[in-house]
C-alpha cells in the first residue's frame, strides 16, 4: 500500500501527541518507571494512572473504530491477526520486562527523551535497534 502525505502528517501529529503525553505523564523518567516496578520498596503508583488514562481513552475510541468501515486515510485496518498465546510472546515479553526493569526505559520514552540530548539515552536507543536487528535476522521464526 502506498503511503500518502496525509498518513505521514497523521504519523507526525500522533507521534508528537504521544511524546507530549509521555512528557506530561512523568513516564519519561526511568527513575519513576523503576519506582513503579519496585512494589516491595519505595513504590510509586503513578504509572497506574498513566496506563489507566491511556487504556480508558483507547477503549472508548475502539467503539468508534468498530463502526468505521475503513480508516480515514487508508483502505483497511491493519490489526494483529494472531490470537494464540504462544512461546515467543511469553519469552519475548519476559525478556522485555527484564530489560525494562534494568534501565527503566521502554521504547517510547527512550525515543522521546532523545530530545534532551543525553548520551546514555542515545546508547540505549542504539542497543535497542541492535537487539531488534539481531532478533529479526537470527531468531525470528525459530521459536514457534
Amino acid at each position: 500500500m502506498k503511503t500518502t502525505v496525509q498518513q505521514i502528517g497523521a504519523a507526525l501529529f500522533c507521534g508528537a501527541l504521544f511524546g507530549f503525553g509521555l512528557s506530561l505523564s512523568g513516564m519519561l523518567d526511568p527513575a519513576r518507571v523503576q519506582g513503579f516496578l519496585d512494589i516491595f520498596g519505595a513504590w510509586d503508583p503513578s504509572l497506574i494512572f498513566v496506563l489507566g488514562g491511556a487504556v480508558t481513552v483507547a477503549f472508548a475510541g475502539m467503539g468508534l473504530v468498530r463502526r468505521m468501515g475503513h480508516p480515514v486515510f487508508a483502505d483497511s485496518f491493519q490489526l494483529p491477526t494472531k490470537t494464540k498465546v504462544d512461546m515467543p510472546l511469553i519469552l519475548g515479553s519476559a525478556l522485555f520486562g527484564i530489560g525494562w526493569g534494568l534501565g527503566g526505559f521502554c521504547p517510547g520514552p527512550a525515543l522521546a527523551s532523545l530530545s534532551l540530548g543525553y548520551g546514555t539515552v542515545a546508547i540505549f536507543v542504539v542497543t535497542m535497534a541492535v537487539g531488534m536487528i539481531l532478533h529479526d535476522r537470527l531468531l525470528a521464526g525459530r521459536l514457534s
Binding site: P88, L89, L91, G92, S93, A94, L95, F96, G97, I98, G99, W100, L102, G103, F105, C106, P107, A110, I123, F124, V125, V126, T127, M128, A129, V130, G131, M132, I133, L134, H135, D136, L139, A140, L143
Partner: peptide, 11 residues
Amino acid sequence: AGLLVGIGSRM
C-alpha cells in the same frame, strides 16, 4: 537493557 528491550519487544 537496550539489547533485552530490543530482542524482547520484537519476539
